[in-house]
Structures are given as C-alpha cells and as structure tokens.
Design a protein around this nucleic acid. Sequence first.
DNA 1: CTTGCTCCTGTAGTGGCTACAGGAAGTAAA
DNA 2: TTTACTTCCTGTAGCCACTACAGGAGCAAG
Lengths: 136, 136
Amino acid sequence: MFAIGKASELSGVNIETIRYYEREGIVAKPDRSAAGRRLYTRDGIAKLRFVKRCRDLGFPIAIIQVFQTLTGEQSRSCTEVKSLAEDHLIEIDTKIKNLVILRRALQSLSRNCDEGAANCPMLDALMSDGPSEDMG
Amino acid sequence: MFAIGKASELSGVNIETIRYYEREGIVAKPDRSAAGRRLYTRDGIAKLRFVKRCRDLGFPIAIIQVFQTLTGEQSRSCTEVKSLAEDHLIEIDTKIKNLVILRRALQSLSRNCDEGAANCPMLDALMSDGPSEDMG
DNA sequence: CTTGCTCCTGTAGTGGCTACAGGAAGTAAA
DNA sequence: TTTACTTCCTGTAGCCACTACAGGAGCAAG
C-alpha cells in the first residue's frame, strides 16, 4: 500500500489532481489508514496512470469514464473504443486545421509590421470596419 | 447609439460576453439611457470587434489589453505588436506540433482495434505498466 | 392591455485542474 | 524527548473566458 505522494510519483498524476479525481468520482475512493490517510494499491495506481494517459491523449474526463465502464465488457467494447478514438481523431484534425488557418492569418497580419512604421498595420487591420464573423 | 443587442450583432460578440468584458474592464463602460440601458457608439462597437478579432486569433485577454494601450502610441508600438504576435505564432506552432504527435499516438493505438478482438488492444496498452511521463 | 421581445443585475456553472490556509500526523536527528 | 521537517488532511477559492439562468423591468406593436 502506498501513500498519496508515492501514488502520485508512480502514476505521474499530481497529488491535488488525485484528490480531485476522487472527489469527482473519476477514480474509486482508496482505503484509509487508521489516521485517515489514503492508501493506494498497485491496481489503484494503475487506474490513475490510465486516466493520465487518456488525458495526455486529450480525451475528456467523460470519455475516460466510458472507457472505464467498457474495460469490464467483452468484444463489443473494442468497437466502441475504436469509434470514440476515431471521433477524437477527427476533433484533433479539426483543431490542427484551425490552428494552421489561424497561423497563416496571424503571419500575414504581422508580416507588414516593421520597426518605425507610422501606424501598426496589424492593429490597423484588426481595428478596421470590415467583416468580423469569419475567423474563428 | 445602439442597444446591446445591436452592438452584439454588429460586433459579433455575444451579449453576455459584452457585459463580461465591461465587468472585467476589457472595454470601457458605455453610456446609459434614462432607463439604464447600455448605449454603444460606433467607436464602442469597433472596440468590441477588435477584441473579438484578437480572440479569434487566439490572443489571451491580457495581451489584447496590451494591444489597446499600444494603439495610442507611436512607432515603438509596431515593434512590440510584432513581437507579441511572433511569440503567439510560436505558441501556435507548439500546439500544432503537439497535436500532430498526439494524433500519431492515438492513431497507432486505435489501429489494432478491430471488431471481435478478445481484449481491446488500445485499452490494454493504456492500462499496462509501462512508463507514463512521456506523452503530453 | 396584453403579448412578446429586449434588457437589467447578480449569481452560479463549465473543464480540469491548481493553490492556498490551517491543522494533524509521521519521521528522523539532536 | 524535543525539535524540525515533511507529508498528509479538509475545505475553499482561483484560474480562463465565457455561458446560463433566475427574477424582474422596460418598451413597442397590435
């Protein structure tokens, strides 16, 4: 059995975050010592690590909870996992695409900025009266 | 003079968000009608639009406030704007890079998932005991 | 005069943490 | 044993940039 500090070290999850996950029901409540301290099993730590890896992949907590209910199940679960992963891939692609567009917009705005310009062309463009609905 | 609904329509900023910007001091307080309703000038609406465009480019509020103080100034401002924009470009590039890495990781994890697999290879991999610090 | 729209203030919720304050318990050296 | 240091506890508030809602008031058209 491991105290929360060790569990944090072994799982890579911040201590405060572990307590947050417990509060929110994202991981099970661990046993407690006589003095009320949390005691984690290897299995509990594995679950924390699982949550961390999913978070690192960008999955929201709600999806991770679905993953956790699916781990108990049989063959159907793999199909569902794949489908959730593919949805997430699409979201990632969308984010990348939007960032690339944004990158281009920002670059073209700042390209004309040069030391000593009377007015900043970038601020001028952002201040001007044109359309405003089409960037985000 | 325009009521808040019209100002929202013309600037593209949500009504609640306009009030939020005012509360937080991101835009100036507008005049009020006799009955206490906000009345926006064209200039006030232009400022809302400016904030929106900056937000759409991903600039945080704090930077937008810097932009606003810089618009009054002379030639030095353009250099500073360019520098802030370039910092932001670097941040965008970092985000894109991380998303691409993440995309690859997720794709390789889900590739082995197939209908009817006994255990889901993706969940198995995420559950396993390997290292956990190196993904995010 | 009623209906329906817009507007007002104030507060709380979102996601996913993170950072305290103020205390108790454990550990190790002097 | 005392002291000092570290870890742990609960509870609450803060972060960012909004968004939503309750409960009410004003205003314009039919």
